[in-house]
Computed example of a mutant assay.
Amino acid sequence: MSRFINWRSNWLSGNFQLFADGVQKGMITFETWRSDAESMFEDKNYFFSNVGFWQSQTNVIDRKTHEVVAIITYDSWKSKAVISLKSGEQYEWKSAGIWKSQFTVSNYKDAHITYSASSNSGAISSDTDNELLIIAGLFIKQIYNKRAIILVACIMPIITISINRH
């Protein structure tokens, strides 16, 4: 069964709204100044909690049971991540295209979710009903967006100083 979901985001906060057939079905809300997030999609409610100083891992906690239902591990050198479900299943998140405007979540067998993005909106095409995977794909996108912004913020002063010295 294919599902089609549209999403919009607020560039400043990074929050997402998810729509199916024009009706809001979910959202992801990031904490201010942090990368932790609360999400709801249809009847599922998850909390994404980043672990460690470099935030190389995220625990996904089911709000109803308070159990860790998935762990997301990030590849610091590439735009890739692995979503490991409590059941033992693993899914890979990876970006595609030069502008990183498309990305996928897949187990390369029976679950494949494709995301496309423009500036503050996009579309999701999924052949799985797993709400956690659908939400996790957008969450990971925002984590990599925040890392890129931090990298630019750190490099720009160095470039500015270098240019002003000459």
Score class of each variant (00 low, 15 high):
residue 21 D to T: 09
residue 97 G to W: 02
residue 92 E to S: 05
residue 81 A to E: 01
residue 87 S to H: 02
residue 29 T to L: 14
residue 75 D to Y: 01
residue 111 A to S: 13
residue 26 G to A: 06
residue 44 K to S: 15
residue 111 A to Y: 14
residue 97 G to E: 04
residue 122 G to D: 00
residue 13 S to L: 04
residue 118 S to F: 07
residue 82 V to L: 09
residue 67 E to H: 09
residue 39 S to D: 02
residue 22 G to H: 00
residue 61 I to G: 00
residue 76 S to G: 11
residue 40 M to G: 14
residue 113 I to V: 07
residue 14 G to H: 03
residue 34 R to I: 12
residue 16 F to K: 01
residue 51 V to G: 01
residue 97 G to I: 05
residue 95 S to Q: 12
residue 90 Q to F: 03
residue 64 K to R: 13
residue 17 Q to T: 10
residue 56 S to D: 15
residue 67 E to D: 09
residue 17 Q to H: 14
residue 40 M to D: 13
residue 99 W to S: 03
residue 83 I to M: 03
residue 48 F to S: 00
residue 117 A to Q: 11
residue 7 W to L: 00
residue 61 I to D: 00
residue 47 F to S: 08
residue 45 N to S: 14
residue 25 K to Y: 05
residue 66 H to I: 08
residue 88 G to C: 06
residue 62 D to L: 01
residue 44 K to A: 13
residue 109 K to Q: 14
residue 47 F to E: 10
residue 12 L to A: 13
residue 107 N to T: 06
residue 5 I to L: 05
residue 109 K to F: 15
residue 110 D to H: 11
residue 67 E to A: 10
residue 22 G to I: 02
residue 74 Y to T: 00
residue 115 Y to V: 01
residue 79 S to L: 11
residue 32 T to D: 12
residue 26 G to Q: 01
residue 73 T to C: 02
residue 75 D to I: 01
residue 13 S to V: 07
residue 73 T to S: 07
residue 21 D to L: 06
residue 66 H to P: 05
residue 28 I to S: 04
residue 10 N to E: 11
residue 11 W to K: 14
residue 11 W to A: 13
residue 88 G to I: 02
residue 96 A to K: 14
residue 85 L to S: 07
residue 24 Q to K: 06
residue 54 W to Y: 10
residue 95 S to C: 11
residue 63 R to F: 10
residue 25 K to M: 09
residue 21 D to P: 04
residue 105 V to D: 04
residue 53 F to T: 10
residue 100 K to H: 12
residue 87 S to N: 06
residue 58 T to Q: 03
residue 76 S to C: 08
residue 32 T to W: 10
residue 11 W to C: 08
residue 56 S to C: 05
residue 93 W to D: 07
residue 77 W to T: 07
residue 24 Q to Y: 02
residue 70 A to R: 01
residue 95 S to A: 11
residue 35 S to Q: 13
residue 40 M to T: 15
residue 101 S to K: 12
residue 52 G to E: 01
residue 91 Y to I: 02
residue 10 N to Y: 05
residue 40 M to C: 13
residue 78 K to H: 04
residue 20 A to Y: 07
residue 12 L to R: 15
residue 10 N to V: 12
residue 39 S to W: 00
residue 73 T to K: 09
residue 66 H to E: 15
residue 12 L to N: 13
residue 72 I to Y: 00
residue 106 S to D: 11
residue 33 W to V: 14
residue 68 V to T: 13
residue 56 S to A: 09
residue 49 S to N: 11
residue 112 H to Q: 15
